[in-house]
């Protein structure tokens, strides 16, 4: 089980709520797109589900309570691209839960690492520095690391933004593979055509829940209009939440 239940969840930074009183159940093994206007709180919602951000109020229940069951690809990655590290070593970090701080990686995982690098189409670039990669290649590297993490719940924040069509198609194949393997995948996306053709479920948010369910029923012009209207309210300063933010920044 790796679904997610959100009960009355308010998420935000300091005392400002970006997501308000959200209720939703993401079923185990589903492939769900999170859509909504800019500033709707999509990324905040994903950070909340990942456990990185604690809810100001409400409860988030992951049916995979172990942190190793969650893999999260943030939109603004904190990767220092100037760091001298090879593609292979970088991808190997996905093995953290297997090897920990001290365990050897050696030949035991060589096959897994090579398979992950091959799956994202970077065979032959194992020894290259991450600083020498293009943006698309770097995103492939991030996906290879996600593959090695072997998590039941995969969270992707705008994984295909500013990436060429070929790379997007290749990475989408990997996402579909995860779905096929029964993993729960949640992805924040902007491209509605891409959502319609590849994501069976959609969760539309605009600070609040707009609609959640089958993509064809959620991604309608009526809902999109409703979301835009709700987000015109978003353009006003967000309301101040009474609960003081309790989590670590």
């Amino acid at each position: 089980m790796a679904g997610v239940s959100l009960r009355n969840v308010t998420l935000g930074y300091d005392t400002v709520a970006a997501i308000r009183d959200l209720d939703a159940d993401v079923s185990d093994g589903s492939l769900t797109a999170i859509v909504g206007p800019n500033g709707a709180g999509k990324s905040t919602l994903l950070r909340g589900i990942s456990g990185e951000l604690l809810p100001l109020s409400g409860h988030i229940t992951r049916h995979a309570p172990n942190p190793r069951d969650i893999a999260y690809l943030p939109q603004q990655s904190s990767v220092d691209r100037s760091f001298p590290i090879t593609v292979k070593d970088f991808v190997s970090m996905g093995l953290w839960h297997q090897v920990g701080p001290l365990g050897g990686i050696g030949s035991r995982y060589a096959h897994d690492i090579n398979r992950a690098i091959e799956a994202v189409g970077l065979r032959g670039l194992e020894g290259r520095s991450i600083g020498a990669l293009s943006g698309g290649q770097m995103q492939r590297v991030m996906f290879a690391r996600l593959l090695l993490q072997d998590a039941k719940l995969v969270l992707l924040d705008e994984p295909f933004t500013a990436i060429d069509a070929t790379t997007t198609a290749d990475l989408l194949n990997i996402v579909r593979g995860w779905h096929w393997e029964g993993r729960t995948v949640l992805a924040v996306l902007h491209d509605h055509d891409l959502v319609r053709s590849h994501f069976p479920k959609t969760l539309m948010v605009a600070r609040d829940l707009v609609a959640h369910g089958d993509t064809a029923k959620v991604l309608t012009s009526a809902n999109l209009l409703k979301a835009r209207r709700m987000c015109e309210a978003c353009d006003r300063p967000p309301e101040i939440c009474e609960h003081k933010f309790a989590g670590a920044a």
């Binding site: 999260y72 990655s77 990767v79 220092d80 590290i85 970088f90 970090m93 953290w96 920990g100 701080p101």
Partner: peptide, 14 residues
């Protein structure tokens, strides 16, 4: 090394 190259990832896994 992880803390240098990708601190967010280190925090997410450990």
């Amino acid at each position: 090394t992880l803390e240098c190259v990708d601190p967010q990832f280190l925090r997410s896994v450990s």
